[in-house]
Write a protein that binds this DNA or RNA. Structure first.
Lengths: 335, 335
DNA sequence: TTGTATGCGTTATCAA
DNA sequence: TTGATAACGCATACAA
């Protein structure tokens, strides 16, 4: 590895002071057009690149924001990260991606290291942190966007983005009812999941709107994976054989639900309709292709990054309202 | 956002020089046990955290390495990233994750920004860069590990990790032959893929070892996605109906292959066996569960990170040999 | 055991 | 239009 030239090296080679070079590098006024060109060329020749570390120390800005996700292996978060990175790249920002592996300790450690790196802003995806710690953390950063976590009192340096799970579940129920299904069931996710709870709320609201009643035995919780969906559905079908429609917590669970249906001799969607949630790539790989609630996760990421850059650039703007992302029902083959 | 205390603030509060505090922070000798305790407590109370930017400028080390992947949305790379991050976390390093979106320009931009940030090392996963640019890039970093790309002349600051694709394909062919299949076919990936080429080599070597001959019409290239596998397989089966075993470029392609088989009325694995590659989570979601070549990607990530940290810590060690990761055949239901 | 001086590469401030 | 000097927060080398 060869040592990179510094701004001083360039200045010496050009026979000017380092400030003149600095002005050229940052496209600032106060340099004669002729010297500017000369220095530009020299920079090119010498392969000079500004040292971001030194610049960060001097300006207290790092042109870097971080995104903290519980599990980067989960395409759900990977897609958000992708959208966020696209915007960051456009705007000349860099994106730090941290993975907490669903572990609160690591989340704390990650946030801690981010502070030490003087990051400009943080995108927090579904933080596990208790609310008090969360607010304390937020106050440490210049800008934060919170995904899928609702803060009671909005802060000026945080933007909030949430999935409109209630709406999504309602749309699913509407579709079931419109296609003649009457004996609906819900394979809900983990009891602790915020969005899981919201999806239950939406499901119940949908039933109510259709004049159907919510039967507790027509709901089953499960781990948010295929096998969880399969087992929960098998139990549910044993208990309530006439079920003709299932709303699943997410697409993985939906796939498990379909498997359980098929295992019990039911055909999907003829005997029983299944709707998933999230529209992950898997949805168009399995057969039947999943009818599901599409969430534009790249857009979530883009929005999250845009908002955070806004806050960074106008720190004194008024507190931001929560953004709700509306899921869209995409009708394929399973319902 | 409130301003964070600096080491000087702590020193003033403690009534000592900042060097004494610095020694405590870095667990260096030369401080009385009593003052050390006192300062420790003060650090705790004041919530002091060292500023990594300033530290990086002073030490020329950032305790940060980056991993550059073509597509973070692809679980293949996400898993590698996970393993790498786990090791980084253990060792007190931070991991920058950059996504190039399969785009050479963005790869260049990413590498460029990494240089400017004075990153300690970089994990390059399947770089698109032409070999000359690649070598030029590598020389800019203190430490590099290269994944799935072979360098002719090893450099002291780079470790190389490659999947033993040849072995993997051979294992698959062996398994086909051992279970009585004789009319094998290969749904290869994109022609430009390095590992795709190696898998073809292994497939041919496997055939040769079994005394079978390679028929060009028993091979079809395709895009490395499910739909590509489905279409390519449909064509292949039309052309060569008696095929009784298919080795697919990867698991996505394998799923497509299975779909094409079923579409044509063939049962898997009774009429035709299918083996995938990579063992992504999907492999145990679809039915039949995929028999496939498992690659321990987390281990790849862990190894890559370990190697890079070795180089960082012992820059003068001799050049590293290439590590080959051996795939393992996991037999499930599709072959 | 503790402290002082200096420098890391850059930008900000103010003077020429 | 230019340049000298002082930060930025910390660590290294050396002195007390």
């Amino acid at each position: 590895m060869k040592k990179r030239p510094t701004i001083t090296d360039v200045a010496q080679a050009a026979g000017v002071s380092l400030m003149t070079v600095s002005r050229v590098v940052n496209d600032k006024p106060g340099v004669g057009e002729e010297t500017r060109q000369r220095i530009r060329q020299l920079i090119e020749e010498m392969g000079y690149r500004p040292n971001e570390i030194a610049r960060g120390l001097a300006t207290r800005q790092t042109a870097t924001v971080a995104i903290v996700v519980p599990d980067i292996t989960n395409p759900f978060f990977a897609q958000i990260a992708c959208g966020a990175e696209a915007v960051a790249f456009e705007k000349g920002y860099h994106l730090f991606l941290l993975n907490t592996a669903e572990n609160t300790d690591r989340e704390v450690a990650a946030l801690d290291s981010l502070q030490q790196k003087e990051i400009d802003g943080v995108l927090l995806c579904s933080p596990r942190l208790p609310i008090d710690d969360l607010e304390a953390t937020i106050s440490q950063f210049a800008a934060v966007t919170l995904f899928n976590r609702e803060l009671q009192n909005p802060l000026p340096n945080v933007a909030q983005i949430n999935i409109n799970d209630v709406l999504g579940a309602q749309l699913a129920v509407q579709h079931f009812v419109a296609s003649g299904r009457r004996r609906l069931a819900l394979i809900a996710g983990p009891v602790t999941s915020t969005s899981g709870q919201r999806r239950i709320d939406g499901y119940r609201a949908g039933l109510r709107a259709a004049g159907l009643i919510f039967e507790p035995q027509a709901m089953e919780h499960c781990q948010p994976v295929t096998e969880g969906g399969r087992m929960a559905t098998a139990q549910l079908l044993a208990r309530r054989p006439k079920t003709d429609a299932i709303l699943a917590f997410n697409d993985l669970v939906a796939v498990g639900a379909i498997q359980a249906c098929e295992d019990s001799g039911r055909r999907v969607p003829d005997d029983i309709a299944v709707i998933g949630f999230d529209d992950i790539p898997l949805a168009t790989i399995v057969r039947p292709h999943l009818t599901t609630l599409h969430i534009d996760l790249e857009e979530v990421g883009r929005l999250a990054m845009s908002k955070i850059l806004e806050i960074i650039q106008q720190p004194d703007a008024p507190a931001h309202a929560t953004h709700w992302i509306d899921p869209q029902l995409v009708i394929r083959d399973s319902a």
